[in-house]
Nucleic acid binder design. Structure first.
Length: 465
RNA sequence: GGCUCGGUAGCAAAGUGGCUAUGCACCUGAUUGCAAAUCAGAGUACGUCGGUUCGACUCCGGCCCGAGCCUCCA
């Protein structure tokens, strides 16, 4: 039985889908004006695992996963102006880059990726409803605001009281707002800005309304899971609840999930602090699966400290797992082992991926124990390792390829696979002649080039460090 | 100021009122021409001060330290 920590109640709850034949999840995706950083990678990977696990439980055809793209907002406009390019040009470029990064890390594509600019009708409809129901008002400056005081329960998700928010408010006082906590649904266009026609004049949507409009449009008024980074809990998700519940009169979302931050030197990784690393930057040094493993090696709600040392650790751990798989042809067998049960129990417990990964190592050790003594068992275990790893999006490449893949450095340095094979042949010849000095010289040479040689009963294998 | 969440061995990271987490690193043994890999084994923990309990890393309270939200942010 899957249990999920629901941020709305701050409790672990048994997950009961509204409709088992159509489990629905919406995740707030990226605002596309720059490359994704490791913080974005975490959202991508964490909810990819949630999606995979839901698919494993309910069947792939019974899960609807929607992750939006924000393709119109102040930062996008500013960046496009700065670059002297069209907005669509900028956003399309970064959507493409985001897909490349996500694909590299083995993140499955969601069923839908709605874009704000393609859902203006739904956005305008929802704003109109909110105005008609008295939850929103048009201000003198042409903006339309949501009247926070009208919504009973505002602050529930973030555990905040309206008065407390006002007291500690860092919100700039905006003359047009009736209350500083009111937030914008529709922004009147300034001259030269991109805009859409509306009953309140030309303008563009506020950030929060798009997610309410698109999630309702794609998944209905009331769905199962809504996810995103912890920084979206307030005000973004709080505002979504206010908008959606007020507009539809329905419940909106049952379970709210937020992943913790990625930190650098114990500080939140963020654009404003400038301490972020983009995914593609990190990919120059580490394989994409290493990033994925690193992210899943801690629980999704905990903070995750980014450092080279942690990535190195992830790489070593993954190497151990792939080494167990190397040279074994997996074959499906009746698999209902204790480790498998433990793996599922770990995942059922609010997606405890570190504990689930620990089970992977249990299987790997068992594979190594019996790989020469009981090949049938080893093949069955390998198959199980692949299957469970697959639920985390791990271990899906060919072991040999993973172990021998080199991250090409900028100088194109390093030995080619062919050069390595040649040296290994020379070394084998030396060994046949019991020329240990010559053999070791070649091994040192390879080692210096980052290639590790392993002499086994089945012959010599190699891998890149 | 208000509101959250944490402090576990060298580094990461789970977890439980009494029973080996796990990974990386390190040490010992087996294996190997020597290595590497692998297997077997050892060691190093639960911020601090009290309380509850037969027994607490695990529950309760104080204190110290850290992170986050209250403005855009995944």
């Amino acid at each position: 039985m899957l249990k999920i920590h629901n941020n709305l109640t701050r409790q672990l709850e048994s997950f009961q889908p509204i409709d088992k034949k159509n489990v629905r999840m919406y995740v707030c995706g990226m605002t596309v004006y720059d490359f994704c950083h490791i913080g974005h990678a975490r959202v991508l990977v964490v909810f990819d695992v949630v999606y995979r696990y839901l698919c494993a439980i309910y069947g792939k055809e019974h899960v609807s996963y929607v992750r939006n793209v924000t393709d119109i907002d102040d930062k996008i406009i500013a960046r496009a102006n700065q670059n002297g390019e069209k907005i669509e040009q900028l956003t399309n470029r970064f959507i493409k880059a985001m897909h490349e990064d996500a694909d590299a890390m083995g993140v499955l594509r969601p069923n839908e990726e709605p874009r704000a600019t393609m859902h203006m009708q739904q956005i305008l409809d929802m704003i109109r409803t909110l105005v008609e129901k008295g939850y929103a008002y048009a201000a003198k400056n042409g903006d339309v605001y949501y009247d926070v005081s009208k919504f009973v329960g505002y602050g529930r998700l973030s555990g905040k009281q309206l008065d407390d928010l006002r007291a500690g408010s860092r919100v700039e006082v905006d003359e047009a707002k009736e209350d500083p906590l009111d937030f914008v649904l529709w922004k009147a266009a300034k001259p030269g800005e991109p805009s859409w026609e509306s009953p309140w004049g030309a303008g563009r949507p506020g950030w929060h309304i798009e997610c309410s409009a698109m999630s309702t449009h794609c998944l209905g008024t009331h769905f199962d899971i809504h996810g995103g980074g912890l920084d979206l809990q307030f005000p973004h998700h709080e505002n979504e609840i206010a908008q959606s519940c007020a507009a539809t009169g329905d419940d909106f979302v049952n379970v709210w999930m937020h992943n913790g931050f990625v930190r650098v030197d114990n500080e939140k990784m963020s654009k404003s602090l400038g301490n972020f690393f983009t995914i593609r930057e990190v990919l120059k040094k580490y394989a994409p699966e290493v990033i994925r493993y690193f992210i899943l090696s801690s629980h999704y709600r905990s903070p995750l400290n980014y450092s080279d040392q942690h990535l190195d650790n992830a790489k070593s751990a993954l190497t151990t797992l792939y080494t167990a798989l190397r040279g074994i042809i997996p074959s499906k067998a009746a698999a209902d082992s204790a480790t498998r049960t433990a793996f599922m129990a770990a995942m059922d417990d609010d997606f405890n991926t570190p504990l689930a990964i620990a089970q992977l190592f249990e299987i790997a050790r068992e594979v190594n124990r019996c790989r020469t003594t009981d090949t049938i068992k080893a093949a069955a275990l390998a198959s199980e390792l692949l299957e469970l790893g697959g639920m985390l999006g791990l271990l899906q490449q060919d072991a040999e390829s993973f172990l021998q893949a080199g991250v090409v450095d900028d100088n194109g340095a390093g030995l080619s696979n062919q050069a390595i094979d040649t040296l290994i042949q020379q070394r084998l010849q030396a060994r046949a002649n019991k020329d240990w000095a010559g053999s070791d010289r070649i091994r040192d040479q390879l080692k210096a080039a980052g290639v590790v040689i392993e002499d086994g009963p089945q012959g010599t294998t190699w891998r890149r460090q």
